[in-house]
């Protein structure tokens, strides 16, 4: 039987070191990440800055998912959680009109396998007078709502999803929150 040389042993040890470092990156870091909570409390008394000067008052009892929430100067995303229900708002630069923004959001929803939009789009207006479109969609095991606004050359996309019962229970607070959406009126 051939004996393994010192050089081969060192090479193999080095390879084990490479595998261990890669495993640390691919599995270790996500494990540490999972060990820490994703959410933190958020005040329902004051507006939360989503990004690009757009604010919203969070629903009562919601927590903020810091793994998705990314505020920014020209774009931003926020994800609130109410139990199993996810309430996400994304602001990003957009050149088209409200109809185009609605169509874009519907296309993105239906691009996910198993997701389908349901029914026609209806008009909605926030407390600040921002006009938008809203509709519904279904996905395996959950239902959803979407709302879209266009203001100051930005689109504001709201998606709400969760199990039917939870969604029905939390929808009033979320709709009240959506109506508090406001922009600072500045073109970026």
């Amino acid at each position: 039987m051939a004996r393994i040389t010192r050089r081969e042993r060192m090479s193999l040890l080095g390879a084990v070191g490479v595998v261990a470092t890669l495993a640390g990156l691919a599995f270790g870091l996500p494990a540490i990440d999972r060990a820490l909570p994703d959410t933190r409390p958020v005040s329902a008394d004051e507006p939360y800055l989503i990004g690009a000067g757009v604010t919203v008052v969070p629903p009562v009892g919601a927590t903020l998912d810091v793994t998705v929430t990314r505020p920014g100067g020209s774009a931003g995303t926020v994800l609130f959680r109410l139990g199993s229900v996810q309430y996400q708002i994304a602001v990003r630069p957009f050149d088209g009109d409200l109809r185009a923004a609605g169509e874009r959001l519907r296309q993105r929803i239906t691009a996910t396998s198993g997701y389908q939009v349901t029914g026609p789009q209806l008009g909605i207006t926030t407390a600040g007078g921002l006009a938008g479109l809203q509709g519904g969609y279904t996905a395996p095991g959950r239902s959803g709502r979407y709302v879209v606004f266009v203001a100051d050359r930005d689109s504001v996309e709201v998606t709400i999803s969760g199990a039917d019962l939870d969604l029905a229970r939390t929808l009033p607070q979320i709709e009240a929150s959506t109506r508090t959406l406001q922009t600072d009126g500045r073109d970026r």
């Binding site: 870091l29 540490i32 990440d33 909570p37 810091v66 793994t67 990314r70």
Partner: peptide, 13 residues
């Protein structure tokens, strides 16, 4: 996965 996790950790910590 590692970059996503590390970015999440920046947000969490």
């Amino acid at each position: 996965p590692a970059s996503t996790a590390l970015e999440d950790l920046v947000a969490k910590l």
